[in-house]
Design a protein around this nucleic acid. Structure first.
Lengths: 102, 102
DNA sequence: TATAGTAATATCGTGTTACGATATCAATTT
DNA sequence: AAATTGATATCGTAACACGATATTACTATA
């Protein structure tokens, strides 16, 4: 119940997280699910993968298929546009936090 | 284009803003539209009012009708549950910012 | 070489909702 | 009355979050 409300609040947070990681180093889907879980965000594959596809088609992420132990993994890294969006988001996140912190 | 992407990122931010203001003092819809605009968030009535109704029905806000200059205005203020959600969101916003700031 | 297991990714159906545009409502001014 | 203004509500459409389930491809066991 409370979780469902919070999930909506945090969908943007999650995407910012994803962009941030995509900037540090390429990642693949199921790794990201674990990473988000470590930050307290439960996200099922049925939500994450379409989200990644969406972020790819809006040119925030770019995909590269890599062969790892004979299996194909799809690694995502950030695009130039993604970096711009991330910077904008960081600015806004700071303003938000500054305003609500007390 | 870029705006459309950012809007999605910031919907959670906007709701946190709303909760924050609702905690400080009661507000009404069109005042909030201006307030959000001052923070760089453009939000049309067709988006805000349903959002307020939603936040009321999920028990984050409570409504009170007030007569102002003969007109009825609907003032919203935060609920106990809203305060809890806001605190949780503040915590997460801080963690997010801490992680992405460099 | 079947069979089961496992890691990673994809898709399906459903219900929700964000959005701009438009409409309503009540009071005030021309 | 007619037009204006401030505030709130609704409509139609397209998007999409979600859990559950399916798929794909390789590996380990019998």
């Amino acid at each position: 119940m409370k979780d469902k409300i919070l999930r909506k609040f945090f969908l943007g947070f999650i995407q910012i997280h994803i962009l941030h990681h995509a900037k540090k180093e390429p990642f693949y889907g199921s790794w990201m699910i674990k990473e988000l879980k470590d930050h307290g965000y439960d996200m099922s594959p049925g939500t994450l993968y379409p989200l990644l596809h969406n972020m790819e088609s809006t040119n925030l992420l770019k995909k590269e298929e890599k062969n790892v132990d004979g299996k194909i993994r799809k690694y995502y890294q950030i695009t130039t546009q993604g970096i711009e969006i991330l910077e904008e988001a960081t600015k806004k996140a700071y303003e938000l936090f500054k305003e609500i912190k007390d």
